[in-house]
């Protein structure tokens, strides 16, 4: 009798487990699993958004088209330039800022908040502000003229190929530098204080303290932040979209997401756009897998 009751309790609990899990599964199926499978299938068809004819199976055509297309490789190149140009200075400078914040004794919270402030704004607002700063009569030219000792020179922030790429990098850097600084600060904060004290007693100076203790212990955090930033940068869209909407030339900053968007929405070529999406997915899959792996090892190191 008692045994039977225990058995049914177990079954009841199992049933409730499924009931609690089921709603999420429905949503994940509809909005994650189905679209990614659908994307794989669509990438082998030549669907046109406006055409009434049923899509035709074209095999690898979309992919071979992309690999031969110069525009596609340009967007890959643009994304690579943006990613490397953003994530290297972002990681290096936010690490430096975090170390400085943790080395001073006063105003720590103030500096963190000041640096973090832009992350509170939406990316659309960030792009809007910088669009005015990069205006030929704007602050960026004034600052550059003052710095370089020139007068009235237009540095073409929004029209020259290199400068335009630099401009998008600056916007992104500005928005996220504080965010990653705070992340590093919490990483440094997790280092046991006794280690630093012991090293100081042994006569280590700050330089040695950083390179022998802080940095080696921060390696997992640095790795995690680097992969996270790379993933973020690969997905960049807003700044580039808004700058081109406001009239900046598209080609130099036509990153992969912008290219997917335009191929699907302006050219109506769904098949080609999904093939690009699948390629982006494969690249990001590798990075995300790396991130999960890295974050797991980080847990082990710090706990």
């Amino acid at each position: 009798m008692r045994r039977k009751r225990g058995f049914s309790m177990e079954r009841k609990k199992a049933m409730w487990g499924w009931i609690f899990v089921l709603p999420s599964l429905v949503f994940f199926s509809a909005f994650s699993f189905y679209p990614i499978i659908n994307a794989l299938i669509e990438s082998f068809y030549n669907r046109n958004l406006l055409s009434l004819r049923p899509p035709r199976f074209v095999g690898w055509d979309n992919y071979t088209y992309l690999f031969r297309s110069r525009d596609f490789w340009l967007s890959v190149q643009n994304t690579a330039i943006f990613t490397v140009g953003t994530f290297v200075p972002l990681v290096v400078l936010s690490l430096m800022l975090a170390v400085c914040i943790m080395s001073i004794t006063r105003l720590r919270r103030f500096f963190q908040l000041a640096l973090y402030a832009p992350a509170v704004l939406s990316s659309v607002v960030a792009a809007l502000i910088w669009l005015l700063i990069f205006d030929p009569r704007g602050l960026a030219n004034q600052a550059m003229n003052a710095l370089m000792g020139t007068y009235g020179v237009n540095y073409k922030w929004l029209s020259d190929t290199t400068m335009l790429r630099l401009s998008t990098i600056i916007v992104y850097f500005w928005k996220y530098v504080g965010y990653f600084t705070v992340l590093f600060v919490s990483g440094i904060g997790a280092i046991p204080q006794t280690l630093n004290e012991a090293a100081l007693i042994d006569g280590a100076n700050r330089w040695q303290l950083f390179w022998r203790i802080t940095f080696p212990l921060l390696k997992p955090t640095t790795l995690l932040v680097s992969v996270m930033t790379m993933i973020q940068c690969l997905k960049t869209f807003s700044t580039q979209y808004l700058f081109t909407t406001a009239g900046a030339p598209t080609r130099p900053i036509n990153v992969i997401t912008l290219s997917i968007y335009n191929t699907a929405i302006k050219d109506y070529r769904i098949g080609r756009a999904t093939a690009m999406s699948i390629l982006l997915f494969l690249v990001m899959f590798v990075f995300t897998w790396l991130q999960l792996k890295v974050s797991r090892t980080e847990e082990v190191t710090f706990m």
Binding site: Y34, E42, K235, T257, A264, S277, I278, F281
Partner: peptide
């Protein structure tokens, strides 16, 4: 591991 940007077009069709 499925970034939104990679499924946005199929999602849009859905």
């Amino acid at each position: 591991m499925i970034p939104f940007e990679a499924i946005m077009i199929p999602l849009y069709m859905v």
